Simulated assay, not measured.
Amino acid sequence: MYEIIQKLHSGWAYLALLVLVIAVVNSFLGLSSKKEFTEKDRKIGLFALAAIHTQLLIGFIVYFISPLGFSQLGQMKDAALRLTSLEHPLINIIGIVLITIGWSKHKKLTTSESKFKTLSIFYGLGLVLILSRIPWNLWF
């Protein structure tokens, strides 16, 4: 069971990151070109939010059933275990919180420039944090 959920978490991560990168690039392009914030832009941001939250839910399941997750929290001297049991989940949760804040804040704004700017900042920071704590050695 663990292997299936872990593979789902790893596989879905590619999709979630792709959609998040698309959302960040779209928001930067919209901000730099001073274009109007459209329904398409809203949907791109929403799909990124949904994909990353789905990844978070799958990650919570993996964290609590994994031999490298919650059960290894006491092993802080081992860098690999510290990454999978503490750093990866904590930093990714912070990144996802930033993305969620960005989504919530942009809904209250009225100008296209402020919407793109808010999504650029919060989604961009969330993406950087998430990329910083991916266990790359387990991906490739």
Rank of each mutant, 00 (worst) to 15 (best):
D41A: 08
H9G: 06
I58R: 01
E39P: 03
S27H: 05
I44E: 07
F37C: 03
Q55L: 03
I52G: 00
V19I: 15
T54F: 11
I22L: 14
K7G: 04
K43W: 11
A51T: 05
V19H: 10
H53G: 05
S10C: 03
T38V: 05
H9D: 08
R42C: 06
A50W: 08
I52R: 00
T54N: 01
A48M: 06
L29P: 04
L56K: 02
F37S: 00
L8C: 09
S32M: 13
L29M: 14
S32I: 11
G59E: 02
W12D: 04
K40M: 04
S27K: 04
Y14L: 14
A23Q: 04
L8R: 02
L31M: 09
A51H: 00
G11H: 08
I44H: 07
L49V: 05
Y14I: 07
A23T: 11
K40Q: 09
N26M: 09
I44V: 15
T54R: 00
F28C: 11
G30Q: 07
I58M: 03
K7V: 14
V25L: 12
A13G: 13
G30D: 06
A50E: 08
A16R: 01
L29D: 06
S10Y: 03
T38M: 09
E36Y: 07
E39Y: 12
G59L: 02
V21C: 14
A23W: 10
A51K: 02
Q55A: 01
V25D: 03
A51P: 02
I58H: 00
L20M: 13
L56H: 00
I58K: 02
F28G: 04
G30W: 06
E36L: 07
L57F: 15
I22D: 07
S27Q: 03
L57I: 11
L29G: 08
W12I: 06
L49H: 06
T54H: 01
K35M: 10
L46N: 10
I44R: 13
L8K: 01
S10I: 14
H53E: 07
L31K: 13
Y14F: 13
Y14V: 12
I44D: 05
L31T: 04
S33I: 02
S10G: 15
F47R: 09
L49S: 03
L56V: 08
K43P: 07
L29T: 10
F28E: 02
V19Q: 07
Q55S: 01
K40W: 01
K35I: 08
V24E: 08
L57P: 00
L49T: 05
I52E: 12
L15F: 15
L56E: 00
E36G: 04
A13W: 04
D41Q: 06
S27W: 05
K34D: 14
R42W: 10
T38P: 09
G11M: 08
S27G: 06
L57S: 02
F47H: 07
R42H: 10
S33A: 10
L56P: 00
S10R: 08
L18K: 06
Q55F: 00
K34G: 15
V21L: 09
F47A: 15
A50P: 00
A48S: 15
I58S: 02
A51S: 15
S27I: 04
T38K: 13
A48R: 04
G11R: 05
A23N: 08
F28K: 07
S32W: 11
A16H: 03
A51L: 03
G59F: 03
L46K: 13
W12C: 04
E39V: 12
N26H: 11
